[in-house]
Amino acid sequence: MRDPSPSSPPAPDGEGPPRRRSRRRAGIVSAVVLVLLAALATGAAVYFTGRPIPAPLWVQTRIEARIASALPQARVDFGAMEFVVDEGWRPRVRLQDIFVTTPEGDEIVSFNEFKASLSMRSLLRGMAQPRAISLSGVVANLRRGADGRVSLSAGAGIAPPEREAATLPQLIGQIDEVLAAPRYPPSAQSSCAR
């Protein structure tokens, strides 16, 4: 039989040696920290759902650089960029005051707002693939020449006409053909993934 040493007093009931107590405390502290982190994440998700979050300047700069490399013949500038996560975890991007100009500064097209809802599944794979795109405040000029031909150009600048036709119904038919074209050719899908 072992004799308890007189130098170590017996532990009170429910507590073991000092090692067990420190493990128990560490376990309790870890559990409390995990619960607090989960509560914080849930609160942030509820708070930010449906509210616009301004994009940081470095994100805007990076997107402008990517657009510039994809469209070297045009320059795209925008005023504000916001992210919104809607109910059901549907992410959206909104750009305001968009101007597309030539490298010399002549306006090609401008519009007030660009909205794109993004596919969450694609975002989780590291790709930004839009599900729907909406433009508002697009400026377009419809002109009839002296010979009766009609032309449509986007923007208020000096850009050449985008579409020309002998009659207005023919011009509308051309626009319908463009809008009825497939949304994403296979080569465009792979370039969006970068």
Score class of each variant (00 low, 15 high):
14 G>T: 09
67 I>Y: 06
172 I>T: 06
84 V>Y: 07
80 A>I: 05
1 M>E: 15
111 F>I: 11
41 A>Q: 07
60 Q>G: 03
16 G>R: 12
6 P>E: 05
134 S>F: 08
92 R>P: 06
162 E>S: 11
32 V>P: 05
29 V>Q: 04
103 P>S: 10
184 Y>G: 01
171 L>E: 00
60 Q>H: 05
132 A>H: 06
2 R>H: 15
88 G>N: 14
119 S>N: 07
43 G>H: 06
188 A>E: 08
81 M>W: 06
25 R>Y: 10
44 A>T: 02
46 V>P: 00
191 S>T: 09
115 K>F: 12
186 P>Q: 01
179 L>Q: 01
21 R>S: 08
45 A>H: 03
12 P>E: 08
148 G>S: 04
43 G>T: 07
179 L>M: 01
31 A>G: 13
43 G>S: 12
31 A>C: 09
180 A>D: 02
127 M>T: 14
87 E>T: 15
11 A>Y: 08
73 Q>K: 11
59 V>K: 02
35 V>S: 07
137 G>P: 04
87 E>P: 13
28 I>M: 12
5 S>L: 10
5 S>K: 10
178 V>E: 02
48 F>D: 11
86 D>T: 15
121 R>G: 06
34 L>F: 03
55 A>E: 00
22 S>R: 13
80 A>Q: 13
70 A>V: 00
8 S>E: 15
97 D>H: 14
88 G>V: 09
191 S>W: 06
91 P>Y: 09
30 S>I: 14
95 L>A: 09
37 L>N: 07
103 P>A: 12
36 L>Y: 04
55 A>W: 01
60 Q>E: 08
94 R>L: 05
17 P>N: 13
15 E>Y: 11
110 S>D: 14
163 R>Q: 10
133 I>V: 07
7 S>E: 15
162 E>D: 05
46 V>H: 05
3 D>T: 14
131 R>I: 02
155 G>F: 00
172 I>G: 01
22 S>G: 12
186 P>N: 00
186 P>V: 02
175 I>N: 01
190 S>I: 09
103 P>Y: 14
166 A>D: 04
17 P>E: 14
171 L>V: 08
49 T>K: 09
153 S>E: 04
120 M>C: 01
16 G>K: 13
76 V>R: 06
185 P>K: 04
158 I>V: 13
21 R>Y: 03
25 R>D: 14
35 V>Q: 02
7 S>H: 10
185 P>I: 02
134 S>H: 05
25 R>K: 12
15 E>Q: 13
113 E>Y: 04
161 P>H: 04
57 L>K: 08
177 E>F: 00
7 S>P: 09
14 G>S: 12
85 V>K: 07
105 G>P: 10
114 F>Q: 06
187 S>D: 15
72 P>K: 06
144 R>Q: 10
143 R>F: 05
74 A>I: 04
85 V>L: 11
75 R>A: 06
130 P>H: 09
69 S>C: 00
178 V>M: 03
157 G>A: 01
5 S>F: 14
26 A>W: 11
135 L>Q: 03
72 P>E: 05
7 S>M: 10
7 S>N: 13
67 I>P: 07
148 G>A: 03
160 P>G: 06
62 R>C: 08
4 P>K: 14
40 L>Q: 10
128 A>R: 07
116 A>I: 12
186 P>E: 01
132 A>M: 10
